[in-house]
């Protein structure tokens, strides 16, 4: 696993002061760090492990290990990235115990075909068609249906809003591998959500799709992509 370095200055780490105070023995400072980061750590462990009991155990271990090893934190990354990396490792350890070691290696087991199947338009603001609790259930189900490695990249990148570099560092993946997983995860979750949010196909949408397909085929055949057939 590459220990990737990227441009980062310690001054950018908003957790720096709390980390310092913790190292000086201030346990309340550590409690503040825990409060601030428990959401992200939990999302990481539940994404990898799937089961609540396991995710809870991994989260507890993460915060204990982070405290015990805080003096080894090098500050070449943000505290949150370092912490997420520990959460990933703790989760993997539990997986290994469950003999399910392949969870985060993917590529071979991943669906190779990225081609979207559901291509109908969605309702405007489709989330408004559902009560908040129902919407949350739909979204969580869509994410749960992804393989673990895709769940975790999606939650880190698109819910926790880590950068590509931070996501890669937290997971011990290369940047290209991270990018390709993020893309697949996004497309897969889109496909799952489309089942709830898309409009039923109309004659017009079918026609448009057929036209679009013909145009693409013609364009490819003629090597004049998009050419002469005009817009939609």
């Amino acid at each position: 696993m590459p220990n990737r370095k990227y441009s980062f200055s310690p001054a950018q780490d908003e957790d720096g002061p709390l980390v310092e105070r913790t190292l000086e023995g201030d346990r309340q400072a550590y409690e503040q760090l825990v409060r601030k980061h428990e959401k992200r750590v939990f999302r990481t462990t539940i994404a990898i492990l799937g089961e609540l009991a396991d995710a809870e155990e991994a989260m507890q271990e993460t915060f204990l290990k982070a405290y015990q090893n805080l003096h080894t934190f090098r500050r070449d990354a943000r505290f949150t990235t370092w912490l997420t990396r520990i959460a990933v490792n703790e989760s993997l350890q539990i997986l290994r115990r469950r003999r399910d070691t392949a969870a985060l290696d993917d590529p071979e087991t991943a669906p190779q075909n990225l081609r979207p199947h559901r291509v109908e338009e969605w309702y405007a603001n489709p989330e408004r068609h559902y009560a908040a609790a129902e919407l949350k259930r739909i979204v969580e189900e869509a994410i749960r249906a992804l393989p673990p490695t895709y769940r975790v990249v999606l939650l880190l990148r698109d819910v926790e809003e880590l950068s590509t570099e931070e996501t890669a560092a937290a997971l011990g993946l290369s940047i290209p591998a991270t990018k390709s997983r993020v893309l697949r995860a996004r497309l897969m979750v889109r496909e799952a959500l489309a089942a709830y949010f898309e409009k039923p196909p109309t004659l017009r949408s079918r026609l448009r799709r057929a036209t679009s397909m013909v145009r693409n085929m013609m364009a490819m055949a003629l090597e004049r992509p998009g050419g002469w057939f005009g817009g939609r």
Binding site: F42, R43, I46, A47, W122, P126, E127, A132, L135, K136, V139, E140, I143, L154, L155, D158, V159, E161, R186, V189, R190, L193, F197
Partner: peptide
């Protein structure tokens, strides 16, 4: 839209 909805509903 998917990414917006996912982020807004704070899953898990």
């Amino acid at each position: 839209q998917s990414l917006r909805i996912i982020a807004d509903c704070e899953p898990f």
